[in-house]
């Protein structure tokens, strides 16, 4: 479904992503892990054509090199960016409505009703403006907005960042639900959450993929992972 080969991202003299290769198969959920500054966000932004890059990004047989960002979305490659970016001047429901812009005749697994079922907390907030939402509510809106676009592959950048554990848990549960219907590529610092949602994980460090493994094995290789992530505790419970 998505195949990345030799992807490079540079910002002036900073070489943020150094020739990485990554595959996401149909229906697969892949976690992208790595320490701060590893190049995770840069990779996702390059896939969505928000930053210039070299190397190839092929989605469903189509090379995305010359496709503008809005058309990448219209192909069904939907990006939930770091920081959520809910439209502050639009209501919750309008945020969902604008999500359908990229749908383009694809049959959607998620309509508005399904999103409200998935995130019941949003039901009473339908008419509230985006800027008046809490971080968790914003994350729900951001994911809901992506789901109504009939995604074929969802790119999600740090869904649990800054959320209370209980809210992060609700988001994780929703993603597990989503995984059964669409492919996922999720950046996540919380390894526990990543393992819960994804079958496979790739660890990025210094702009290169340093480790790729089935998610289940991450528990066993906790120490190694910890050294890559630069964390004393990996959150795997190991």
């Amino acid at each position: 479904m998505l195949s990345i080969d030799g992807l490079d991202v540079r910002y002036g003299t900073t070489h943020a992503v150094r020739g990485i290769c990554l595959e996401v198969a149909d229906g697969e959920a892949v976690a992208l892990l790595g320490p701060n500054g590893a190049g995770k966000t840069s990779t996702l932004r390059a896939i969505s054509r928000l930053v210039p890059s070299t190397g190839s990004v092929v989605f469903d047989g189509q090379d995305l090199a010359k496709v503008p960002a809005e058309n990448v979305a219209r192909l069904g490659l939907i990006h939930v960016p770091e920081g959520r970016h809910v439209f502050g001047d639009l209501t919750v429901h309008e945020n969902l409505q604008i999500g359908t812009t990229a749908r383009r005749g694809r049959r959607s697994e998620f309509g508005f009703d399904e999103v409200y079922d998935l995130f019941p907390a949003l039901v009473p907030l339908r008419g509230r403006l985006g800027f008046a939402l809490s971080g968790g509510e914003q994350q729900m809106v951001a994911i809901g907005r992506a789901l109504v676009a009939a995604p074929r592959l969802l790119l999600i950048d740090e869904p649990s960042l800054g959320l209370a554990p209980i809210v992060a848990d609700a988001v994780a549960s929703a993603l597990v639900e989503v995984r059964s219907r669409t492919a996922l590529l999720v950046i996540e610092q919380n390894v526990h959450l990543a393992v819960r949602v994804c079958q496979r994980a790739a660890v990025l460090s210094g702009g290169v993929v340093v480790l790729e493994a089935p998610a289940a094995q991450l528990h066993d290789r906790g120490e190694l992972l910890a050294s890559y992530l630069g964390q004393s505790r990996t959150g795997t419970g190991a």
Partner: peptide, 19 residues
């Protein structure tokens, strides 16, 4: 809605497929 989205956050608007 698209105009308002564009006014609020042009990059995010593109990510939702707004031309």
């Amino acid at each position: 809605r698209q105009v308002r989205a564009l006014a609020a956050d042009p990059e995010m608007a593109r990510l939702t497929g707004v031309r």
